[in-house]
Amino acid sequence: MPEPVITARQLSKQYGDFTAVDGIDFDVAPGESFGLLGPNGAGKSTTMRMVGAVSTRTGGELRILGLDPDKHGPDIRSQLGVVPQQDNLDQELRVRDNLLVYGRYFGLPRGVIAERADALLEFAQLADRAKAKVDDLSGGMKRRLTIARALINEPRILLLDEPTTGLDPQARHILWDRLFRLKEQGTTLVLTTHYMDEAEQLCDRLVVVDKGRIMAEGSPAALIREYSSREVLEVRFGSDKNAEAAERLQGIGDRLEVLPDRILVYSENGEAELERITQLGLEPITSLVRRSSLEDVFLRLTGRSLIE
């Protein structure tokens, strides 16, 4: 494995009595697309702010591009692109001007910035909005502009904190497409998300985080293989009959997960399990066979759903 661009060992962040990040270990290889998946409040954003060399860790070790962020914050940040959870574009400036002033923060010459700004506006599909006010952009456009801004210094590592939260499905797909292109160009991506489909789409490897700790690590496919079955059968019997039906379902599938509104049957073959259920004389109101997702992995690991 080539020298990692990010190395964290027992990385921790404490706010008074509250432990936001509780001793996590991970490495990110150059060119890799690495994700932190977990519910709100899991410590993902705090981790990102430490990796972004703005928030000082309270314990453990952290190296970014081989440097300690405590001593080399500005140097490290010169090589990062940051897309925060909440857009912090300057609403008092126009679209293109946001890129121009931001490029200056990296000490880049004006000519270089102007050239890159135009290319990035193309990339972000905002070339025709160059003179627009930031306030007049849609949520998806603001996110794309924030990503364009994060790329003005041609970063080694792009950090994205919940990049598509709050966007409609179409805007999300446009954004995923742009991020996928960056990944193809070899940019190292580190992103947090609580959307499993996003993690599956974008991440080569991810860690599942809950309550400041890492619960599991691996590629999306490997995590699903390890912590879930190939398929999931979802059956509903009506909310008052679920528990009763669940008792009669014991022994069916590899594992059962009884949720308030439905029962999940983990199995290599969902259709076959459904047949066995009907043979038992049980008639679910609805049934659905699907492939296992990271949501199932998370449920297995924590006993809770990702989106609560």
């Binding site: 081989g66 200056r104 923060y105 000490g107």
Partner: peptide, 24 residues
């Protein structure tokens, strides 16, 4: 590493002139 050297070079100008960039 090559990365670290590039970072140190990249941080040099902002360390000196950062306040002026903000003023601008």
């Amino acid at each position: 590493s090559e990365d670290a050297r590039r970072a140190l070079a990249g941080g040099a100008a902002p360390r000196r002139f950062g306040a002026w960039y903000v003023a601008e």
